[in-house]
Simulated assay, not measured.
Amino acid sequence: MQAYVVWTEIPVTNLRAAADFYAKVFGWTMDIVQMGPNEVAMFNALTDEDDNAVAGHLYQGTPAAGSGPTIHIALPGTAEDGAKRCVAAGGQVMGPVIDIPQGRFQYATDPDGNSIALFETKDH
């Protein structure tokens, strides 16, 4: 079997505020649930058709120094629309929108400084 990403976890300083940011930018309902000993805010991006999609959650923790690894997240609409929602919700965008064969993306950070990419798929 070939290795592949199965889950993502993003550390945030304020779980409810971060869940609100990701909900505003990506259009998710961020359910806060108990997972093991901790509360987490689940990404609800998966549907029955998304068997191979990667999911994850936010957790109360310490964000990486600098920006840490970048998680590319597909969003509804264009990269430009996602960038506007990101800024309005308290994030920052960096540099220009980048075109690649699979679509387009905009580098950004969430309010905790975590590095994300606002990904517009080719068939958005």
Rank of each mutant, 00 (worst) to 15 (best):
T78F: 09
M94D: 08
D99F: 04
Q2C: 03
G27M: 04
E39Q: 15
P37F: 07
V97Q: 03
D123F: 10
F105N: 11
V12I: 09
D48F: 11
Q60M: 04
L75Q: 13
K24M: 06
V33Y: 05
I71L: 14
A17K: 08
E120C: 08
Y107L: 15
K84S: 07
A83E: 06
T62D: 11
G95M: 02
V87I: 14
V6G: 13
A74L: 01
D48N: 15
Q34C: 00
I116R: 04
V93Y: 01
D51G: 11
S115V: 00
N52H: 09
E9D: 14
G90K: 02
L118Q: 04
L75T: 12
W7H: 15
H124K: 09
D112G: 05
G90S: 01
A17G: 02
G82L: 02
A88R: 01
L58Y: 14
G90F: 00
G61F: 14
T8C: 13
T13A: 14
Q102T: 15
N14C: 15
Q106W: 10
Y22F: 10
G113N: 01
G90P: 03
H57K: 12
G66M: 08
M35D: 05
W7P: 00
R85A: 13
Q60G: 14
Y107A: 13
V93F: 03
A88P: 00
R85F: 13
A55V: 12
L46C: 04
G103S: 12
T8G: 08
M1L: 13
E80P: 00
L58A: 07
Q92R: 12
I116H: 01
A65R: 06
G27L: 01
D51C: 04
A19P: 02
D123T: 14
G77R: 12
P37S: 07
A108E: 05
I116W: 07
Y59D: 07
D123K: 06
P63M: 10
D51L: 14
W7D: 03
I32M: 00
G61E: 14
V93P: 06
Y4T: 05
G66T: 01
G27D: 03
L118G: 02
G36L: 00
E9M: 10
V5I: 11
M94E: 14
A64P: 11
M30T: 05
D51I: 06
P37N: 13
H124N: 12
Q106F: 10
W7G: 00
A23H: 02
A55K: 03
P69H: 07
Y22G: 01
G27S: 02
I116D: 01
E9F: 10
V33I: 11
E39M: 06
M42F: 02
G90N: 02
Q34W: 01
